Every structure is written in structure tokens, then in C-alpha cells.
Computed example of a mutant assay.
Amino acid sequence: MPVFAVLYDYLTDSVPARDEHRPAHRQFLGTLTGPVNLLASGPYVDEPAGALLIVEATSVAEVETAMDADPFAVQGLISGRAVREWTQVKGPWA
């Protein structure tokens, strides 16, 4: 199954709101077990604030539809999102 990198950019002034909605966001991520399957996720360490998610799915459209339901997206805390098909050369999903 194809693997995709999902790159989130967060609104710069959204830290309190992200803190408030983080439990729901993480619960949502825990539900991604098919047809979009979350392989890994985590926030960037430095600025600009954002996160990287690695998912399996059949298409970009399927990933985008699933990510639209993320509480961070629903609450308008994501200023930008990119979904790119990704080929891992080395590692656990290669």
C-alpha cells in the first residue's frame, strides 16, 4: 500500500487552543487504523510549529478526507497541510 507524508503547519498563535484540543487530536490519531493507517506522527522540535504524520492509504484524496476530520483541522488550528506520496528506502516500512 502507498505511504504518504502529511506535513502540518500550525497557526503561530494557536498554542493554548492546541493544548486544549490535543487530547481529542491524539484520540483521533489513534483511530487511524484503516483505510488510512497511521504509522508514525509527532510535532516538529523547532519553529515554525507543525507536525509530520506518516500514513498508509490508497490515495492522496483518501488521506486528505481522513485528515479533514482531525480535531486540529476542525478547530482551524492548521494553517497549511501538504500530503506527499513517499517511498522509504530504508527503515521499518521499506
Rank of each mutant, 00 (worst) to 15 (best):
M1F: 03
M1P: 05
M1K: 07
V3M: 11
V3P: 02
F4H: 03
F4P: 07
F4Y: 14
A5T: 03
V6T: 01
V6K: 00
V6R: 02
L7E: 06
Y8G: 07
Y8A: 05
Y8W: 03
Y8C: 04
D9E: 13
D9L: 09
Y10R: 00
L11Y: 05
D13R: 01
D13S: 12
D13T: 10
S14A: 15
V15M: 11
V15F: 12
V15W: 07
V15R: 15
P16G: 04
P16A: 05
A17G: 02
A17K: 08
A17Y: 02
R18T: 01
R18S: 06
D19T: 14
E20D: 13
H21E: 14
P23H: 09
A24C: 05
H25V: 00
H25R: 01
H25E: 09
Q27W: 10
Q27G: 11
F28G: 08
L29F: 11
L29Q: 14
G30L: 02
G30D: 11
T31V: 01
T31W: 01
T31P: 00
L32P: 10
L32T: 06
T33N: 12
T33I: 09
T33H: 12
T33K: 13
G34T: 03
P35D: 03
P35S: 08
V36I: 11
V36R: 07
N37D: 15
L38V: 08
L38M: 11
L39Q: 09
A40G: 04
A40Y: 11
S41K: 09
S41M: 09
P43L: 12
Y44G: 12
Y44V: 10
Y44R: 15
Y44S: 10
Y44Q: 12
Y44A: 10
D46S: 13
D46W: 11
E47S: 13
E47P: 02
E47M: 11
P48A: 11
P48I: 07
A49C: 04
G50A: 07
A51F: 02
A51Q: 01
A51P: 03
L52M: 14
L52F: 11
L52G: 04
L52I: 13
L52V: 14
I54F: 13
V55Q: 07
E56Y: 06
A57N: 07
T58G: 15
S59Q: 06
S59Y: 05
V60Y: 10
V60C: 10
A61D: 15
A61G: 09
A61Y: 01
E62L: 05
E62M: 08
V63K: 01
T65R: 12
A66M: 00
A66Y: 00
A66G: 08
A66L: 00
M67I: 11
M67Y: 07
M67H: 04
A69K: 15
A69S: 13
D70M: 00
D70A: 01
P71K: 02
P71M: 03
F72W: 07
A73G: 02
A73T: 10
V74K: 07
V74T: 09
G76K: 02
G76N: 05
I78A: 01
I78F: 00
S79V: 04
S79G: 15
R81F: 00
R81D: 01
V83H: 04
V83W: 03
W86P: 08
W86G: 06
W86M: 07
Q88D: 09
Q88S: 05
V89T: 12
V89A: 15
P92G: 04
P92I: 02
W93V: 04
A94G: 08
